[in-house]
Design a protein around this nucleic acid. Structure first.
Ligand code: SF4
Ligand code: SF4
Lengths: 149, 149
DNA sequence: TATATTTGGATAATAATTGTCCGAATTATC
DNA sequence: GATAATTCGGACAATTATTATCCAAATATA
């Protein structure tokens, strides 16, 4: 029940993008370098983020990425679901058992509710809010300083 | 971000145990058969549940398992953590970045809060409540009927 | 003693995650 | 038009986690 490292990469990379959203584009190589993570792997993650509609890509010289929507519209929930998918945290195999599954049983209903509550919290925090928080904690988050090419 | 199948097995097996808690012991073979799942794999899961203090085991003839604590004291949270562990859903690699991590940043704080909310919901539902719900939905949950040896 | 059962360890099969590489497509600039 | 810079898509490989099986040893009953 842990988020994949890809999600941790994606959150931080979008955060970095949001901080640098005034620039035309940012290279994936720069984003990887800023965090000291694998560039080729991050490139793959970004392909997914494009498909999910969170970032826009620009190919060719002077290309790169920037946010597809404003930073105040992208939440931690959005990012998490873009990377991890949207399938529910709990699914039961009722076929395997002798279980009709007409009405949600209390197990299923509870799992759905727990998941919903979790996403409600995550949906409240946007990249914009992360930036505001970063202003307060700036001295502890040096990796956000943009890296010159 | 999905629960492992082991957790699904554990929840249903403990549920089955709770329903049959009037009996002295229940065999792991019976529990597996009732759900049509692998007996040897379930046996391994039960070893973990013993260590977690959720069930008690009895070796030898007439042995088996029963709940270590009353059904109203075992929650879905307890079961989930017994199987999946208690490490947080989100951990960041601040060493890899240039991040001091003195105070929780908003990412970390939000993840902790989301996790907490999720567990709060799961901690409200006990095996006892599942049994009550099963009485209502009895016709759809035939697998709970205890299997004669 | 014979039988029933969990325990713990070893091992294997399968699937998911993480990571790399490269040629093709695209775009900007000279 | 040629060149350089960049993402894209697909294939592939390495590593780790999950799911599963088996068996000898320990324990308990009768
Ligand atoms: S009891 Fe509920 S969770 Fe379990 S198999 Fe039936 S419907 Fe699914
Ligand atoms: S910004 Fe927050 S989550 Fe990211 S590395 Fe720093 S402390 Fe961790």
């Amino acid at each position: 029940m842990q988020l994949s490292q890809s999600t941790e990469y994606a959150i931080h990379s979008l955060f970095y993008l949001a901080v640098n959203n005034n620039r035309q584009t940012v290279l994936v190589s720069e984003i990887a370098r800023a965090q000291n993570i694998s560039e080729s792997y991050l490139a793959k993650i970004f392909q997914g983020l494009v498909k999910a509609g969170l970032v826009r890509s620009y190919r060719g010289a002077k290309g790169g990425y920037h946010l597809a929507v404003p930073a105040e519209k992208i939440t931690l929930k959005n990012i998490m679901q873009a990377v991890e998918g949207t399938s529910p945290i709990y699914t039961c195999d009722h076929d395997r058992r002798d279980c009709d599954f007409v009405v949600d049983c209390l197990i299923t209903a509870t799992m759905k509710k727990a998941e919903k509550k979790m996403y409600e919290i995550l949906d409240k925090i946007t990249l914009e809010k992360l930036i505001e928080n970063a202003e307060e904690l700036r001295n502890q988050m040096k990796w956000l300083d943009s890296i010159p090419k």
